[in-house]
Structures are given as structure tokens and as C-alpha cells.
């Protein structure tokens, strides 16, 4: 084999992938058949692989090195920074911008209009301020299935942790799973300067339930559970010592009361 042949051999991506275990079995067999016919190539490949193994084993000896407190501390700090970065990107991402635009359009336009036409207004004095965005958000999700989400269902623990931090109040999962619902997404909105955490749940029958929580200031009224209607939906709202709650669903009063009881 000439020097040129050997260089050509080294530029064969299939041979490299063979050494690095990146070929499917049928291609592996092809290469092995080729190597069986070419002793020079076989020797070159064996040596490349051997050197690769030596370097790999040497790298693994790092696992025996004592752990470093300084590295562990930097690792934690980097983890915190990256998590913050993740949240910020999610908040400023196109998904949330589309969502916010949809809510504004809904509240300001067709959605508010339809509610007004049906005898309900988002700004009516009969509902406290934290009800309107929940109702709007519920209808937006119902009507706009293409919406991307702020936190996906499988990010619930991260969502709760982040929302609690933003709201400066620990909030718990609405726990509607025990009623057969699965969390689909969640997001944080700001209404009149107040954070409102909104959770979207759906059951196997494709019924949507929207739950929201917002911190309650001691100076604010303490709302007792009230169930009312809004267009095709029913909504329940009430206050605890530290939070206001809203639950919206297209269901009957008894079911909504059960949902409300499960939330708190």
C-alpha cells in the first residue's frame, strides 16, 4: 500500500465511523469484509482503534480524581444562571408573545365582544380583577389550539418553583390529577401589576379546566366561594388567607364546585 493509499484510507468517513462504532450492522459487515481482503487497511484500522482506546482509557482516569469543592460550587452557580436564562428565554420567546397578543386581541376585541353580547363583560363590577384574565385565557386556549406554551405539562415543578419566586408566595399544584385531569401547560401573567399564575388542565374527554391563583393582599376583600356563568363557561372564584383563586370550565355547577374543592 502506498503512502497515498494510506492517506486515502484515512479520509474514508465509513472507516472512521467503523472505528467509532457509528455504523449500522450491515455497513459494519461490509467494512469487515473489505478489511478481511486488505491486510494493510486492517492493520491501520487496528492501530487507529488501539490508540483511540488508549486515549479513552486515559480520559476515564479523570473519574478517579478527587472531587473538587470549587468545581461543585461553580457548577451550582452555573446551574442557577442557566435556569434563569431558560426562564427568561421562555418568557420573552415567540410563544408567549403570540399568547399575549391573543389575549389582548381576545380581551379587546372579539372575545370581550362576545362576552358582552351574551350579557357578561370582562370588566363588569360583578367580578374582581383577577377573574377576567383567567376567563380570557381559558377562552383563548379553547379557541386557539395552535398556541405554544410557556411551561409544558412535564415542567410543572419548574413552573411552580419559578412562579412562587416571582409571586414571592409559595404556590402549590392545583392537583386536579385526582379528578382525572392532566396539566397541559401553565403561565404567569401580570394584571394590574399583580402576578396571576394560570394552569390549564384537560381530561381524557378533552374538557379544559383553567385554574388561576394570585396573591391576596391583606387589604383586599376576602371573597367567599361564588359560582357564576360566563358565556358558555361556568366560573368559580374565592379567596384564602393569602391567595385568590379562579376556576373556569364548561361544566355544571356541581362539577365546578368539586373542581374548586380539589384545587385548594
Amino acid at each position: 500500500m502506498t503512502q497515498q493509499d494510506q492517506t486515502d484510507l484515512a479520509l474514508d468517513p465509513d472507516l472512521m465511523a467503523y472505528i467509532d462504532g457509528g455504523l449500522p450492522p450491515d455497513q459494519m459487515a461490509e467494512i469487515e469484509a473489505r478489511l478481511a481482503r486488505d491486510p494493510d487497511a486492517r492493520e491501520a484500522v487496528a492501530q487507529w482503534r488501539h490508540f483511540d482506546n488508549l486515549l479513552h482509557q486515559y480520559g476515564r482516569t479523570a473519574d478517579e480524581m478527587p472531587s473538587s469543592l470549587k468545581i461543585a460550587s461553580l457548577e451550582r452557580e452555573l446551574g442557577r444562571k442557566l435556569k434563569k436564562r431558560q426562564w427568561r428565554a421562555t418568557l420573552l420567546g415567540p410563544g408567549l408573545q403570540r399568547f399575549a397578543a391573543s389575549v389582548v386581541l381576545f380581551a379587546a376585541g372579539w372575545g370581550a365582544h362576545s362576552l358582552y353580547e351574551s350579557g357578561m363583560s370582562l370588566t363588569t363590577e360583578s367580578h374582581p380583577y383577577f377573574v377576567a384574565p383567567t376567563l380570557a385565557g381559558h377562552s383563548v386556549v379553547t379557541l386557539a389550539s395552535y398556541q405554544s406554551t410557556e411551561f409544558k405539562g412535564d415542567q410543572m415543578s419548574e413552573a411552580l418553583e419559578w412562579m412562587s419566586e416571582q409571586m414571592q408566595h409559595k404556590i402549590e399544584s392545583p392537583k386536579l390529577e385526582r379528578l382525572g385531569y392532566q396539566v397541559e401547560s401553565s403561565r404567569l401573567m401580570t394584571v394590574q401589576g399583580q402576578p396571576v399564575a394560570v394552569f390549564y388542565y384537560r381530561n381524557p374527554e378533552d374538557e379544559l379546566v383553567t385554574v388561576s391563583m394570585t396573591p391576596r393582599d391583606a387589604s383586599q376583600p376576602d371573597y367567599r366561594l361564588r359560582v357564576t356563568e360566563a358565556a358558555e363557561n361556568k366560573l368559580a372564584y374565592w379567596s384564602s388567607n393569602s391567595l385568590h383563586y379562579v376556576v373556569v370550565a364548561k361544566t355544571d355547577t356541581a362539577s365546578l364546585t368539586t373542581l374548586a374543592a380539589a384545587v385548594e
Binding site: 494510506q6 492517506t7 484510507l9 484515512a10 479520509l11 474514508d12 468517513p13 472507516l15 472512521m16 491501520a44 492501530q47 487507529w48 490508540f51 483511540d52
Partner: peptide, 16 residues
Amino acid sequence: FMSRLGRGREALRKIV
């Protein structure tokens, strides 16, 4: 990258 990897492996072998 692939070209450097291949050439490097062969050069390493030659040196050894």
C-alpha cells in the same frame, strides 16, 4: 472535521 480526524489518526500512527 472528518478530514482532520482521518489525517490526524494516520499521522499519529506514522509518528508512533
